[in-house]
């Protein structure tokens, strides 16, 4: 469209400065920190920090928990929001109210809800009461490994609505005539889902999955509200806890090393996902 070079650089100046000053320059500058020892002479020690951080038990715990939480949350959000969006499509005109209610938690502050959440999941709480009513035993939700459950549910409660909205929007781009034709040919609804809906919305399906995964890496708030900066239950100690505690000590060597290690893991993961998605799309065509 427009080609005026001076104008575009002028208009981009604020974003350019901001992105460079806050992200890009220090990102590369940080590599220097991760390769030096942080003493007065700042000796170059190669990958010594990486060895140290990777052997740090707190880093291992944090990374493990962050990965576990995200692996549990991302696919769950993807599948549940797909099913919900599908149910909304079935309801057609009556779906509007439900869709709006499902989106509502996305804007709610989790800090305000943590108290009611701990009441629901208390040892004597309503969740346990229902378990007992179903003939099961009470669970101590707010300690140890089961604490992951309330955190994951709170996280999903909050984040599922936005994925549902993206899926709903994507469904509208699929022509209805395709479904009508398929039903005339005798295709079952489930078959139609896999052979019509999924292939046609695969870009947004991929986007929802990636976004769900990136956001799931960020699960920290919920754990922080329940457990504080040093939670008693190590099962909810996330990578963010590790980073925060080393930021507080101004330990640049550790935080930069941990950050780049995690960046590499994430990039490998997304590269794999992207590769799989392109394979699936090719297979469809």
């Amino acid at each position: 469209m427009f080609r005026k070079k001076k104008v575009v650089w002028l208009l981009l100046l604020p974003a350019f400065t901001g992105l460079f000053v806050f992200y890009i320059i220090p990102f590369f500058g940080g590599i220097y920190y991760s390769l030096t020892d942080g003493t007065f002479q700042n000796n170059f020690i190669g990958f010594g920090n990486y060895a140290k951080v990777w052997n740090n038990t707190m880093f291992q715990t944090g990374l493990k928990n962050t990965l576990i939480l995200s692996v549990l949350c991302a696919p769950a959000i993807w599948i549940i929001s797909f099913i919900l969006a599908d149910m909304l499509r079935v309801l057609d005109k009556h779906a509007k109210g439900f869709r709006n209610i499902l989106l509502l938690p996305y804007l709610m502050p989790s800090a305000a809800l943590i108290l009611i959440w701990t009441i629901l999941f208390d040892y004597g709480g309503v969740v346990n009461k229902m378990l007992v009513a179903l003939g099961l035993d009470r669970v101590i939700w707010l300690r140890g490994a089961p604490l992951r459950v309330p955190i994951i549910i709170l996280y999903m409660w909050k984040n599922i609505g936005f994925s549902v909205v993206i899926f709903t929007a994507a469904f509208q781009s699929v022509p209805i005539s395709l479904y009508e034709f398929a039903s005339l040919e005798g295709a079952s609804p489930l078959y139609q889902e896999f052979k019509i809906t999924l292939p046609l919305i695969s870009p947004s399906a991929f986007l929802v999955f990636v976004m769900a995964w990136i956001n799931a890496f960020k699960i920290f708030k919920e754990a922080y509200y329940i457990g504080g900066a040093y939670p008693d239950s190590m099962e909810i100690y996330t990578l963010q806890h590790f980073m925060n505690n080393h930021f507080a000590k101004i330990n640049y060597q550790y935080v930069t090393t941990a950050a780049y290690s995690f960046a590499i893991i994430v990039f490998v993961l997304f590269a794999l996902l992207y590769y799989m998605e392109s394979r699936i799309r090719k297979g469809v065509n």
Binding site: F16, I25, P26, I214, Q240, A258, A259, Y260, F262, V266
Partner: peptide, 26 residues
């Protein structure tokens, strides 16, 4: 530029906050 923005978006917060802290301190 768009690629950089996309990459920053895909990087988890733990990674992008580190350079920001370095700048803020400087």
């Amino acid at each position: 530029l768009f690629f950089v923005i996309l990459a920053l978006m895909l990087l988890p917060f733990q990674v992008t906050m580190t350079p920001t802290v370095i700048t803020l301190r400087t």
